[in-house]
Design a protein around this nucleic acid. Structure first.
Lengths: 226, 226
DNA sequence: CACTCCGAATTGGTCGACCAATATCTACCA
DNA sequence: TGGTAGATATTGGTCGACCAATTCGGAGTG
């Protein structure tokens, strides 16, 4: 069924292919070679159209795996952030976290309100009872953001959020986990305890150190030369 | 002078070509065929890089006429940043600077190249000979940004730029200056010296302390209860 | 002098062919 | 049974070659 779409614009053609093909969110599109056949386009032209759709956030690509339709719920971060995430190495991303987040934790220790601390403890508890790594990571995110909120500085919170968006855009490759689900003995739990305790005691230096230690340990586990 | 740029990324290669070629706003770039020769790229690859710059609004193209550098090099900060700057108090803004910039200075001390340091020294010299406070502030900006660049981490540089845009948007009210023009004895000069020296010596801790001291001193002068 | 037309210069777009990088599957072996 | 190495599938990126569309200037003509 080659060249079934009449439109001359390859992007429109591809869009219609996706729409008419009934590919829901998360569905895997055919490989590029098949798409070139179906649409009657060369690979270069097809890839340019795919680039457009990817920039718009309609699809999502990954080498070796394929091309997928995005979940339509997610909001698309600005181009600049996506670009940054694409060319930033995971190492540099972690390096930035180690530089920035301890400074924020220090401010949090100074300014944290009772509610802020309650928020952190809640995330901590939820992390403990997380059944999957995915759920754990979500709570980990929430804990770190609660710390940023506790700093009581909209600018710092904004910068933290920017950092986080880039973090999510960075391709982390295969993070291999040793266990099926987070265990109680997972090092991060203890490190989080220390961090929250320091903030609870309004001890800026301790909070700074705790966050720094925690992120360095995460970093070490990520990049260990196994 | 083919392939004079070392970078592997065609886009940055092209960016550097434009920057180093001294093409001001409105200037006409060489035709694509010449660019491919100068940069050692194929036309497809070059055009992809040109696409990126055009999307960013850096250049402007038209069939039959050529490629031109855009007029408005001034990037307008997004509404979100202006908003943030409007409701942020100068005190909190400075607080964020004191938190973030020392951490960046530490990274700079670790990663600074000879060029980075030369850049800082240039800004320093220019600040010394500044005739007006306005000119001085511009060089001060450049020095701080040179430090951020020296950190050799695009994410940190991005965050610094965001911080800076908010800083500019913050209403600083009447900053009363005691002298008509920056004097040699202005405290910041000495503080900058210490900072650059620390980075030159690749001493992270000293650079961290120097930046922190400097910003706290700026902060103290701003908010002193006269 | 004014007008027309043609050709050169320039960007726009497509094509097909490579090879590289990454992920997944499979067959084999201990 | 479990793990490892190699084969296979898939996207990433570059290259050089076409031809089309548009602009601009200059040669030729009245």
């Amino acid at each position: 069924m080659a060249n079934s779409d009449q439109s001359s614009d390859p992007t429109v053609q591809l869009r219609e292919y996706v729409a008419r093909g009934g590919y829901g969110p998360g569905a895997k599109l055919p490989p590029e070679r098949k798409l070139t056949d179906d649409l009657g386009l060369s690979r270069s032209t097809l890839r340019k159209a795919l680039d457009v759709l990817e920039r718009e956030g309609v699809i999502w690509r990954h080498v070796g795996r394929g091309t997928f339709v995005s979940q339509d719920t997610e909001v698309e971060p600005p181009d600049a952030l996506v670009d940054l995430g694409r060319k930033l190495t995971p190492f540099r991303m972690m390096r930035a976290r180690v530089a920035i987040e301890p400074a924020i934790a220090r401010e949090a220790a100074i300014n944290a309100s009772a509610e802020d601390i309650a928020q952190m403890e809640m995330a901590q508890q939820a992390a403990y009872s997380a059944e999957t790594w995915r759920a754990y990571e979500k709570q980990d995110d929430l804990l770190h953001r609660a710390v940023a909120e506790a700093a009581d500085n909209p600018l710092l919170l904004y910068l933290f959020d920017q950092l986080n968006q880039v973090r999510r855009a960075v391709a982390m490759g295969n993070v291999t986990r040793r266990t099926a689900r987070p265990s109680r003995e997972h090092v991060s739990f203890a490190e989080h305890e220390v961090l929250v305790a320091a903030i609870r005691n309004h001890d800026p230096q301790a909070a700074y150190e705790a966050m720094r230690t925690h992120l360095r340990s995460v970093s070490a586990r990520l990049f260990e030369v196994g």
